[in-house]
Design a protein around this nucleic acid. Sequence first.
RNA 1: GGCCCAUUGGUGAAAUGGUUAACACAUCGCCCUCUCAAGGCGACAUUCAUGGGUUCAAAUCCCAUAUGGGUCACCA
Length: 613
Amino acid sequence: MKIIKNLFVIKINATKLTGCIYFNSKMLYNNYVLLPHGQVVRLWTLTPAPEVRILLGQPKKGSEIMDYKKLADLLYPNVDKTIEDYEKMYPERNLSEGSIVARFAPSPTGRMHMGNLFASFIPEVFSHQTNGVFILRIEDTDDKRAIENGTELILEDLKAYKYRIDEDPINGGNYGPYIQSQRKDIYSAFGKYLVSIGRAYPCFCSEDEINKIREIQTEKKDRIGYYGKYAKCRNLSYEEIEQKIKNNEPWVLRLKSNGDFNKKIIFKDLIKGTIEIPENDIDHVLIKSDGIPPYAFAHVVDDHLMRVTHVTRDDSYISSVPYHLEIWNAFGFKAPKYAHISPLNKKEGETVRKLSKRKDPEAAVSFYNERGIPEEAVKLYFATLLNSNFEEWYNQNPSLNINDFRFEFNKMSTSGSLFDIEKLISISKTYFSRLKASDLYDKTLEYLNTYDKDFYTLLKDNKEYTINVLNIEREVPRPRKDISCYSDVKKEISFMFDELFNIDDYKNLEIKKFYKSEILEDYFENVYNKEDDKQDWFNKIKEFSVKYNFCPDNKEYKLNPEKYLGNVSDICELIRVMVTGRTMSPDLYEILKLLSKESINKRINLFKEYLNI
RNA sequence: GGCCCAUUGGUGAAAUGGUUAACACAUCGCCCUCUCAAGGCGACAUUCAUGGGUUCAAAUCCCAUAUGGGUCACCA
């Protein structure tokens, strides 16, 4: 290509045409040249040297070359904004190198579920760990499934999980609107542009005609789709189109694909690695007859204009990547990086299937809310699914949290992970065990406020006491792990409250022969002293146990059990059972220390009463 | 059917051609211990879906088969 006084000169060497093209910079758009007569040439700056090919094949014999600009104006007479206008409205973001702009783009079809939540966790984590931007965009182009308040519900759930959303439909941002149904004008302008460069055309085929094509293809065992010789509207002349438009025939905008199914494109997916797929040669629908685009076109336009750098989405889109890349190329835009995520799966009998909002109760966000499985625990679980080395790191760094870990795309699973609620619960237990008593108290109150008003009031009225109870065997090197969710708290500590403790608490006990109230009365009247430290406390119990012929030494007892009524742990069991109504509880010394003399006496009487029934 | 992807213990998985196949959950055993939990120690894949091939060396690369999943819309 030579430049003569602001005029570009290019040698054409196409199949049937040779010659020169002269054009100025105004006629240059991206790598296309729009010529005055409506032809479009694309500059291929690839190998070997700048070369020009006439796109769209050769003109039909005897007919004019289609004037695409004219066609664009015919189809979109009222669209006056150009794609350049939009480029200016939504300029490149001013972010530092390596910052990721990512988005979560759900349809407003209802509440979030674990699958969704996991899918949105990924862009949230990657964008924020690179000081990037996380966008929520609502894809409501399929109005059949959309529900009222869909957007609000999604935002509500995301907020409940403390996702930081930088731009969304309700709070806005500089790259909106963030709801696809409000972007119709933008799509039209971009559709018009594609028509004007000859990469899109109107199709007037009815549903019946499309079905017929499919039938023929099925019969001939040909590939199904609107492509090549089956794409009959591709070759409509301007006059034919004009006539149909005049007749108000409905039409859709289709991509004029120039792909070759027998060639493969190679692209790199951040998660799955290098993938080879046949090129797209199907003239997919870019814009529906209602003026709204299906997913693919909207994806390209929106993600380009929102300056998204990384597209994370379900891996079911992988097979349409060649199609998406063809659109990116048609515009001459730089395609974003793709990261295709394997969805969360569930095992049902022998088969593995996608976790389903409808079939699996544990998929619903409400399932976790009701049980009080904290949002932090769910996110920790997601993090282990995301990068399995996270868990080891987390266990080694108890004081750090998710934000301190550097996640990587290439460590993500290429096959779908099985959603394992047991594992989640185990992670949740670890999470709870690391909580400070006062934090646990606050968070528990928050939960109880909506799910258990009575218990809420009780805990609220006894703040200091409750925190002390929660602090038993907590904030120590090896904390207890018996709380997996907020609803467990009541089970674990209710016996510490006289208001909740009654004779029924003994009902499930198996009464052993050494369960005698005299022993208890003797112990609390003559031996127990609240001021003792733990060692003294236990030494005194050992001493005391001898009096009733219980062996003070476990090992000794194991050797000669017949000599004794029981051993010192049986004495402890007796005290524990009386005080708590159960054989298993946290540290007995701590429990006794917290309970008042009155409540211990009350329980001795209750226990006595129970034994006599 | 075409195309694409996957397959490592009961489960989630690591290992990127190089000694005995990490780690975690679950299970079982022992220890510690006033019970339980926690914790500590140990057991649990003679082998990475199967069969071939390449290589001094294969879970890892190649080919075939099997199984599972995805996708082929004016759905996303």
